[in-house]
Every structure is written in C-alpha cells, then in structure tokens.
Write a protein that binds this DNA or RNA. Structure first.
Lengths: 194, 194
DNA sequence: CGATTCTTTGAAAACAGTCAATCTGTGTGG
DNA sequence: CCACACAGATTGACTGTTTTCAAAGAATCG
C-alpha cells in the first residue's frame, strides 16, 4: 500500500527515492475492518493518518447520544483529531471505518522529523493545511448561508465520490439535518425532476 | 501602533530587536474608519492583516443580497481572505470595519520573507494556523450539532469580548439565523431568567 | 432635533424534528 | 440456499422552530 502514498506525494511534489525511504521507514500500516474504530473519544491520539484505501468518518456524540459527522475521508486524504494531537488532551472525536480500509500512521514526532528532513514534504503538508483551512471556511459559510437542500445538492456536486459510498443517514448527520428530512428532500427533488 | 504588534509577538514567542526591526520595516499601517472596507468581493488581496485596534467583520453576500458573516476580528487577531491570498483569484469575501480601526498589513511576499528569516515568527504563525484550524473545526461541529439558542449562548460564553461590541443582527448573521429569531431567543432567555 | 439604523413584536407560512410504522435490501447462520 | 434478522430508508401525522413580511419602538449619530 505504500505505493499509493508514493503516488500521492509524487502528484503533489517531487522527492528523492532516499527521502521516500526515510518516510516509508516511519510509516505504520494499519488495516481496519468495516465498523472498526481508528480512534474513540477519550483516547489519546498521536498520529497523522493517511488513507491508502477505504473510507472513514469522524464524528462526535452529543449529550442525547446523537452522532454528528464532521468529516469523511477516503483514499488520498488525511484524517485524525488535530485538536487532540496538538494539545495532548483526550480525543473528542470518534473515527471509524465505513469500509474495510488501509491506512498509514505516522506519529507526530516522526512527522515533524520528516518535515525537517524533507523540505518538499514540509511544503506539501503546508499547502494541504492551507487548502483544508480554506475548505473549512467554505463549509462554515455553507452551513450558515444555505438551506438544507442547497447544502445537500452542493455536497452531491462537490463530493460525488463520497456521496456514493456513504450511507444516507451519515450524510444527513454531516449536513446537520435528520435522516427523515434528508429523505424528504431527496423525494421532493426527484418529483421536481419528473 | 507597532508596539501592540511587538507585545503580541512577545506574548507568543521571543524574537530579537533586530528581527523585529526587519518585521517592522515591512509593515504597512492602515487606518480604517467605521464602515470602511478593507476588502471587497472581487478585489485582489495580497496581505496578512493584523489588528492593532478596532473590530472588523468578514462576510459574503448571497444571490438575494443577504450578508452572511463568517468571522469577526478584534485587536490581536488576524484577518483577510486566505483563499484569495493563496490562489490569486478575486476575493469572495467583504471585510469592513465595525469600529474605527488600525491594522498592520504585510504583503504575502514579505510575510514569507519574514517567516524564512525569523524562525520564531514562522513557528508562531504555524501555531496560530493550527489553532485557527481547530477553531474552525469546532465551529463546524457547533453549526451542525447545536440549536440556534445553544450556539448563541456558546458564542456569548466564548467570545464576550466580541459579543459586546458588535450589533446584534451581525451576530445573527454569524450564527446563521435571522435577526428576528435572535431577538426572540434573547427575549425568551430573559423571561426564563426571571 | 431629524434621519437612519437597529431591535422588537405580531401573525402567517414554510420548514425541520420527532415518533412510530412500514418498506427495502443485505447478509448471515442454520 | 433459504429464511430470518437487521440496518437503513421512507412515509405519515404531529409538534415545534424558524422565516418572512410588515409595522412599531428604541437607540445612535450627525
């Protein structure tokens, strides 16, 4: 599975074989079966996790026991609990596998080492962080500005790769609406279509 | 106003006087009167903006002409349109002053220069970026998980310094609800109190 | 003071949530 | 391989919340 990571890096920047060997030596391969946890609320979390294969979701559970999905992640994306990683505090997110998945884990320490030793990697990570930052700003804007239906349509348009492999009630949770409401939105949209 | 920036930096890290002189020489002081724009949708945006004094808001305008506030910023915070800065594309945000304000602008080029020449500054900025990232994740979580009232109470609790100096209809816009709804929420909360 | 902007209030309509029942598809164990 | 169990999706009836529009009251600023 390491070649997926290599391809990913190559698509963003260029590093030497030697540099990749260093990176490779610090990667932990982690396989997850569907429904297995990568991280549970309360655990400590020390990794950067790159997804070679599969699909995961991150969510939090409120007082009433309801799950709120904050993030989906598929091949060639990163996941984890950044707040917990930076602060050292127990995680507030749960992350589990929606499909059988293969990840690469890199401890934060090793990650920092790589960034120091491989400037191109560091740059790449910086660019990713900035882009994710902007993506989050857009998501905030969407959440406060658009109707449930608009948000759903935008999600379908912008993330068809995710929308197609994730159960509907998780999409509802990601959009901040109830599964019933999402079902009705779809129903009405289909009616209008015909 | 540069001493505000110096104090800010000192509170986060430590840099030499010489380093600060370099930084200082690259800062543009910008004063804004209340209601004046720092940035309008469609403009190009090339700066990192640090607020020495005052209060600004960033917002976008939808098809119906409604403003959606995505961010407030006061003394010792940064503002700008990161997406436009990184991509070079025209800005999609408007940023204007809610109070008479004084900012320091640093062009992205100069900013990068500073980061290279003053490692402590670079580290500081990195930490800020990471913390803002986490703050944005929390805001996303709040938006999809909590009721309008809960979000309002949390906003009051977490940002009293902002809540006290910003008109109510902008808070409503920041929370993604109508001004009337916010007024009613406040009203009901007050009733419960007595 | 007058003008503008901001907030509040009311009533109706649109929207979303809840609860419970039914329907559908999938997969697993017998 | 079938039947059954289970998770997920849909539907209906009802309740509660939020928006919209319009109008009236405060507050603020020049």
């Amino acid at each position: 599975m390491l070649e997926v990571f290599r391809d990913y890096i190559n698509s963003k920047t260029s590093i030497t074989d030697a540099a990749f060997e260093v990176i490779k030596s610090l990667c932990i391969v982690k396989k997850l079966r569907k429904k297995q946890y990568l991280l549970q609320e309360g655990d400590t979390w020390k990794y950067h996790a790159f997804i070679c294969k599969g699909c995961l979701r991150a969510y939090r559970i409120d007082d009433k026991g309801v799950e709120h999905t904050t993030k989906f992640a598929i091949e060639n994306h990163w996941t984890g609990d950044r707040a917990a990683l930076l602060s050292g505090e127990p995680a507030s997110y749960n992350i589990d596998a929606i499909e059988d998945s293969v990840l690469l884990l890199i401890t934060n320490e090793n990650f920092i080492t790589i960034c120091k030793e491989v400037p191109a990697f560091n740059e790449m990570i910086n660019t990713i962080l900035n882009k994710s930052f902007v993506a989050n700003e857009n998501r905030i804007h969407a959440a406060i500005s658009y109707s449930a239906e608009e948000n759903y349509q935008n999600f379908l348009r912008n993330s068809p790769d995710i929308a197609n492999r994730v159960p509907q009630h998780m999409i509802a949770s990601y959009l901040g609406i109830s599964p019933e409401t999402l079902s009705r939105i779809r129903n009405q949209a289909a009616k209008r279509q015909s």
